[in-house]
Amino acid sequence: MSAYEAILLTIITASTPLLLAAIGELVVERSGVLNLGLEGMMVMGAVCGFAMAQVTGSPWLGVLMAMLAGIAMSMLFAFLTQTLVTNQVATGLSITLLGLGLSGLIGSGFVGMPGIKLEYISIPVLSDLPVVGKLVFGQDPLVYISILLVLGVSYMLKRTRMGLIIRAVGQNHDSAHALGYSVIKVRYACIAFGGMTSGLAGAYLSLVYTPQWIENMTAGRGWIALALVVFSTWLPGRLAAGAYLFGGVWILGLYAQGMGVGIPSQLLSSLPYLATILALIVISTNRRLSVINTPASLGQGFVPDR
């Protein structure tokens, strides 16, 4: 494997957890809900996935468990914000704090254990192709799932009735309610989807990226994913571009550091943030497009009047 291939592969693995977490949050926000508990749901996914894989010996059961843990956390968020109509920002923040604390408790017995890595899919023949072989046909399964999710969400939002209803609920929940759509149910479903993908993102960290459990191992990726959603102006294609850009600059920074380039390491490690912000600012200069895609009732609780 050439160095070039290795760099590209690490870029993809570094970007995938961001992409997984962000694509779910994108759907959540399109339905008009702001879930700041991404980090907490991710880290719970990471620890539960790791624990399940350790106990059963199957990383796939670990992945499943991670998704369930993410959904469980998101349903707590949904119950509080949708049924009890609590403030979404405060509730999201407390979900993050809860997740970080609870995951430390659950994971205390697993710290330092060698992990079980999810098998790479290696399509025979194709993955031996020069240049693109490993890159396109030799990734781990979650990478393919993340790409399918982006394509699926993009199609769903743009082309299907379900997507139309989600956008309508996020645009104007009063009108959607008046037309007979159940705002609360639609939002519950979207929040559950968001919980599932952030659980997956957590599983990616503890079962693929660095197969072990370290307390607080999400290290702020949930927040980056949240920022990507906003900067992508709620468009899945831009979201994927933003996630890969972030991962790319990050990894290149690491390589540069390794090769001893004379740039302070602090500057290098802040580069991905700067690059992402710059790129996305340039993209979002089309204000009309961004305002039209912005869910107008984002973050507002909905109380039906009857």
Partner: peptide, 22 residues
């Protein structure tokens, strides 16, 4: 009006129609 500003005319109408008319 109970319209969604960021959606198209067709989308707005479709949202309000019973299933057999969509």
């Amino acid at each position: 009006f109970s319209l969604f500003e960021a959606l198209t005319v067709t989308e707005n109408i479709s949202l309000a129609l019973p299933p057999h008319l969509r």
